[in-house]
Design a protein around this nucleic acid. Structure first.
Length: 128
DNA sequence: ATTCTCACA
DNA sequence: TGTGAGGA
């Protein structure tokens, strides 16, 4: 079941297509990249090429923004996610630790409920 | 026609 | 974030 992830990871979409698929302006898309929220590939002509995963990431970013989470907060969330993923592998593969579950629950709470304001970042240790 | 980078009346 | 310049 690996060909699917591979296809979703193939960067074949130019920014123009991404704009239509996400309803975001090229300005916004490039800005989010400058903030490390998405990392599209570049083709020979230095043109950005996006994968389906990038599209999902962009749509997710838009949702977070609508929920009041600022770019810094979203960046923090993805950094935690990467950190937890890394820790998961390094720790061998047990499904999820208690800390992982708490973290996931917290992220869900932040994503749905309207925590986080356009001025402060997201405090990963804010008590539930 | 498209996208890129850079800069700001 | 928008927008226009100047180049590829």
């Amino acid at each position: 079941m690996k060909g699917k992830e591979l296809r979703r990871s193939l960067a074949v979409l130019p920014i123009g297509t991404v704009m239509k698929l996400t309803s975001l302006t090229a300005r916004q898309i490039r800005y989010y990249e400058s903030q490390g929220l998405v990392l599209p590939q570049r083709n020979d002509g230095n043109r950005r090429m996006y994968s389906l995963n990038d599209i999902d990431r962009l749509l997710e970013i838009k949702d977070y923004l609508d929920d009041g989470v600022n770019v810094a907060g979203i960046k923090a969330i993805y950094e935690q996610q990467a950190a937890r993923e890394a820790a998961r592998k390094a720790k061998q593969d047990r499904p999820l630790t208690d800390a992982d579950v708490r973290q996931i629950l917290q992220d869900e709470l932040i994503r749905q409920g309207g925590l986080g304001h356009p001025q402060d970042g997201v405090d990963p240790h804010r008590p539930l």
